[in-house]
C-alpha cells in the first residue's frame, strides 16, 4: 500500500515541478493541496508542473485537486501543466474530459504504477 504522504518539489529554470506519488483520494488530497499551495504562494514561479507519473491510484478527489491548482495558478498568473499522468490518472481524466481544459504534457510512455 502506498498511502503515505508523498510529494516532492523540484526547482529548475524558473519552474517548480511537484512530483506526487502513491494514492490520491479525499483523505490525502488536503495535505497535497496545502503543500502545493504553500509553494505556489511563496515562490510564484512562471511555470508549475504537476508530475503524476508515479500516482498509483486516483479518484475524483484527484480531479478536484488538479482543477483547484489549475484555478489557483490562473489567479496567480502561473502557467500550469499536468505531466506524464499514469494510466490510472489518465482514465479518470478521460472520464471527466479534463484534457479539454488543461494542458497535459506526455513526455514518455507511462506504465502502470505497481501498488
Amino acid at each position: 500500500m502506498s498511502t503515505q504522504e508523498n510529494i516532492t518539489f523540484e526547482y529548475k529554470n524558473d519552474t517548480i515541478t511537484a512530483h506526487v506519488s502513491g494514492d490520491i483520494d479525499h483523505h490525502r488530497a488536503k495535505a497535497l493541496r496545502e503543500a502545493m499551495d504553500a509553494r505556489l504562494y511563496a515562490d510564484r514561479p512562471p511555470l508549475f508542473l504537476l508530475n503524476m507519473s508515479r500516482v498509483a491510484f486516483m479518484d475524483s478527489s484527484g480531479l478536484g485537486l488538479i482543477l483547484g491548482r489549475f484555478t489557483l495558478c490562473r489567479e496567480l498568473s502561473i502557467e500550469f501543466r499536468l505531466t506524464d499522468p499514469s494510466p490510472e490518472v489518465e482514465k479518470i481524466l478521460d472520464l471527466a474530459g479534463t484534457g479539454r481544459l488543461i494542458r497535459i504534457d506526455r513526455t514518455k510512455n507511462s506504465k502502470s504504477v505497481k501498488n
Binding site: 488530497a29 493541496r33 479518484d59 475524483s60 478527489s61 480531479l63 478536484g64 485537486l65 482543477l67 483547484g68 479518470i92 472520464l95 471527466a96
Partner: peptide, 23 residues
C-alpha cells in the same frame, strides 16, 4: 449530473456518481 456538487469549496469535482456509473 456530471460536475454537480454541493461542496465546491471543498474542491469536490462533482464526478463521483458519473465515475461510479461509467466504471
Amino acid at each position: 449530473e456530471p460536475l454537480f456538487t454541493t461542496d465546491a469549496a471543498g474542491e469536490r469535482s462533482g464526478m463521483g456518481f458519473p465515475i461510479m456509473e461509467s466504471l
